[in-house]
Design a protein around this nucleic acid. Sequence first.
DNA 1: ATCGATTATTCAATAAGTTGACTACATGGA
DNA 2: TCCATGTAGTCAACTTATTGAATAATCGAT
Lengths: 194, 194
Amino acid sequence: MSLRHAVLAALLEGEASGYDLAKGFDASVANFWMATPQQLYRELERMEGEGLVQARVVEQERRPNKRVFSLTDAGSAALHDFTATPAKPTAIRDELMVKVQAVDSGDAEAVVEAVSAQLAFSRGKLARYERLRERLLVGRGEEEYLASGGRVGPYLTLMRGLSFERENIAWAERTVGILRQRHGLVTHAVDGER
Amino acid sequence: MSLRHAVLAALLEGEASGYDLAKGFDASVANFWMATPQQLYRELERMEGEGLVQARVVEQERRPNKRVFSLTDAGSAALHDFTATPAKPTAIRDELMVKVQAVDSGDAEAVVEAVSAQLAFSRGKLARYERLRERLLVGRGEEEYLASGGRVGPYLTLMRGLSFERENIAWAERTVGILRQRHGLVTHAVDGER
DNA sequence: ATCGATTATTCAATAAGTTGACTACATGGA
DNA sequence: TCCATGTAGTCAACTTATTGAATAATCGAT
């Protein structure tokens, strides 16, 4: 039952609708806690019932109304408490790695395709993270930013995301190279590569 | 329903009991696909019913008998097919990151503790990966190994694990430093640090 | 003028995952 | 001797997560 804490953390960035959260909510929490829209809507409703978030209907012209949620004091308190509880070990489920593990008795060409797709995806994500970082720093260096007293949490998780994707890219490039050589596949340019 | 493919991939290393798999099964697949023991036992039974794996009872002295499972031809075929299907995006659920995201309005000291614990854990895991790598390479360089024609899959996923943990360590060290400075916490040695 | 995509949400049916307790035997240490 | 730990597994109850469809309005393109 920790999706709720991820949602609470996401709402620290400001109010959001279920739809906003489902769409990645400005890339914040979505990067280390994925959830389907249905999960989010249900959880938001439950949390509203428990008084952890409050809803406000925003009437929009030319598109459906939406209910935007924000933290209540009880919600902030719950999040605060959560930061002090022991964390469960990270759960990962990475199909791509399963495929790579099995590549020697699998369809090597398809695996190369899959790794290449991941590579393109990671490049996109990295670019997005880098824009986000620029926006946070607004010209300042990192030290200045850290000294300025703004929230560090989002900056630290962003840095984790950046180095994760950089590693991802380096690994995927090597992996594609090795697999292509091994299996005599033709080297061709990948989307986003130059 | 992709736990089954992770299990099939794990069985490429050789036969294993449910208990073996639950214990990480030589660190192979467990690093990118976590599952509880109950999940594994259930899935193994189902797969046996579907003919993807076969069981063999190993009678042991001074300890309970065990059922070790191995791939059948149908199982190998299923795994081969799996490598050719489009992969779903990686699912991650990382409580620690949620805590770090919320650290500015949370219990900073507890978060530092949690990141330190993760740091110790990652150091242990990295050491384990490095031993595994030694064992795979047996004195040869990487190129020799790759040229030798053994399975590349496990090597590639191992490399991913290595760089992931290295990044994890670097990030955790920086994070602990920044948070301690920010919150005026006393710097003290962490388990496994020197 | 209709088709498909986007915003925004809800419902219902399954599938998957988690938790806790329980059995059984053996080993090693206090 | 008793207790904790490790091996090896099963059962039942429960919570979460995934999938697919439905609704409803607007926008842009063909």
